[in-house]
Amino acid sequence: GAPPLPPYSAGGREVTMKKGDILTLLNSTNKDWWKVEVNDRQGFVPAAYVKKLDSGTGKELVLALYDYQEK
Rank of each mutant, 00 (worst) to 15 (best):
L63C: 06
L61W: 10
P3E: 05
L26Y: 03
D21T: 05
D32H: 13
K18R: 14
T57M: 12
T29E: 15
G11D: 14
P3H: 05
D21H: 04
R41E: 13
L61I: 09
D67N: 06
P7M: 08
T24E: 10
V50Y: 00
K18T: 09
P4H: 07
Q42A: 13
K19R: 11
K19I: 05
R41K: 10
G1M: 09
R41W: 06
T16S: 15
Y49W: 07
A47Y: 02
T57H: 15
L53W: 06
D32V: 07
L61M: 11
T29W: 07
V45W: 00
E60A: 13
G11Y: 03
R13K: 14
Q69V: 13
K51Q: 13
G20R: 01
K18Y: 13
D21E: 13
A48N: 13
E60T: 14
M17W: 03
Y66I: 04
V15Q: 04
S9T: 11
T16N: 12
G20I: 00
N39D: 15
D54W: 11
G11V: 11
K18A: 07
K31F: 06
W33T: 00
S28K: 05
L5Q: 06
L61A: 05
Q69P: 15
G20E: 01
G58S: 11
P7E: 14
K19E: 06
K31Y: 06
V15S: 03
T57R: 10
Q42R: 12
W33V: 01
P46R: 02
Y8N: 12
G20W: 04
A10Q: 08
L53Y: 08
K19H: 05
R41P: 00
P3V: 06
D40W: 07
L26M: 06
Y66C: 05
V15H: 05
P3F: 05
V36M: 01
V62E: 00
R41N: 13
D21Y: 05
L65W: 03
G1W: 08
E60M: 10
Y66Q: 03
K19M: 08
D32Q: 07
R41C: 09
Y8K: 10
Y68N: 01
G58M: 08
K71M: 14
T24I: 14
L53Q: 04
V38C: 08
V36T: 01
D67Y: 03
K52Q: 10
L53G: 03
K52A: 08
F44H: 04
Q42W: 10
K51D: 07
K35Q: 10
M17Y: 02
G43F: 07
P46W: 02
V15L: 15
N30E: 07
G20T: 01
T29G: 09
G11N: 13
L25K: 01
S28P: 06
S28W: 08
K71H: 14
G11W: 03
V36K: 00
K51I: 12
Q42M: 10
L26S: 02
M17K: 00
K19W: 04
P6D: 03
L61H: 07
S55F: 11
G58T: 14
L25A: 02
W33G: 00
A64K: 00
T29L: 08
Y49G: 02
Y8T: 15
V15G: 03
T24K: 10
L61S: 07
V50S: 01
P3G: 05
G12W: 09
G56Y: 14
Q69I: 14
M17P: 00
P7Q: 10
